[in-house]
């Protein structure tokens, strides 16, 4: 398992952000992703940065943990920045690196795009950090509800998603167990030529598939024994409710967007 990357990982807490309705978070992030592209001045970028950082702080997850968790993304961000330095040729020449001129426009553009990229990643990862996958599934089921009218199997899709989520840790454990068992029988997953390494996957994949099928079969039987007959006539325990804090959040976000347009140059 990769411990460094936090994208897609949920960190439990009881913060304001954690308690927001997942639909609120999804909708806000959706609009944030669009409006990031409207920022074009120092003030507007500053405003969005302030919004993102304070949201991150409001999750009560250590900022250092989040920043460190985005390490692989940092590499991309820095790469984008450098690429812009080299390619863009606007404004005046600031200085030269190995007789290669660096333009002021390149620094500004590069910084703006790197910052935009960073904000996008930060805010979207806040969703998964503060929302359990099952809440996201619920939210998607609700948001897709209108598609039921055109016979789109929304319930089945949501059930499939939630069962997959439920079994991800189980299958990860299983993968680890089988790969350890095969490593003990002399399989080398980590070194050697590419061809050998690809071959080494077979003794891992075959048992994994067999076990997944067996699980699926047993699960289907257990579901049937527990009275599952499809989505018709089912009630639901999980219910999503838009509360006051959600309205407050929407209002706050609207203010941020309004200010964004006021600070645009």
């Amino acid at each position: 398992m990769n411990n460094a990357l936090i994208i897609g990982q949920y960190v439990p807490s009881n913060s304001f952000i954690h308690r927001l309705d997942p639909r609120t978070k999804i909708v806000i992030i959706f609009f944030f992703v669009i409006f990031v592209f409207f920022a074009n001045s120092v003030a507007s970028y500053g405003l969005l940065t302030l919004f993102s950082i304070s949201s991150a702080l409001a999750t009560k997850i250590k900022l250092s943990f989040i920043i460190k968790g985005l390490t692989p993304v940092w590499i991309l961000i820095i790469f984008t920045f450098i690429l812009h330095l080299i390619v863009t040729k606007e404004g005046e020449v600031l200085f030269e690196v190995f007789s290669y001129p660096i333009f002021s426009g390149a620094v500004i553009l590069g910084a703006a795009i790197a910052l935009r990229f960073f904000l996008l990643i930060l805010v979207t990862s806040l969703l998964t950090l503060t929302t359990t996958p099952i809440e996201i599934t619920d939210a998607i089921e609700h948001i897709l509800q209108p598609l039921n009218r055109i016979k789109f199997p929304v319930h089945e899709l949501a059930l499939m998603m939630s069962i997959s989520l439920r079994f991800i840790p189980t299958l990860m454990q299983e993968t680890e167990k089988i790969s350890k068992a095969q490593a003990s029988r002399g399989v080398d997953f980590k070194t050697g030529p590419m061809k050998d390494r690809i071959q080494a996957i077979v003794p891992l994949l075959v048992p994994l598939f067999i076990s997944a099928f067996k699980r699926a079969e047993e699960l289907a039987m257990a579901m049937e024994a527990r009275g599952y007959q499809g989505g018709d006539g089912r009630t639901k325990l999980r219910e999503l409710k838009i509360e006051r804090r959600d309205w407050l959040t929407f209002f706050g976000f609207a203010l941020v967007i309004l200010s964004l347009f006021l600070t645009r140059s």
Binding site: E174, K177, I178, A181, A183, S184, R185, G186, P203, S211
Partner: peptide, 30 residues
């Protein structure tokens, strides 16, 4: 690993070859 053999819990979950003969030969071959 050649000198230390490990029988994990539910070892039947590691079987994968088409025949038992091939599966038994897998370790020694490696």
């Amino acid at each position: 690993r050649k000198r230390v053999g490990v029988v994990f819990q539910y070892p039947e979950h590691q079987l994968f070859e088409e025949t038992i003969e091939k599966d038994i030969a897998f370790g020694p071959k490696n």
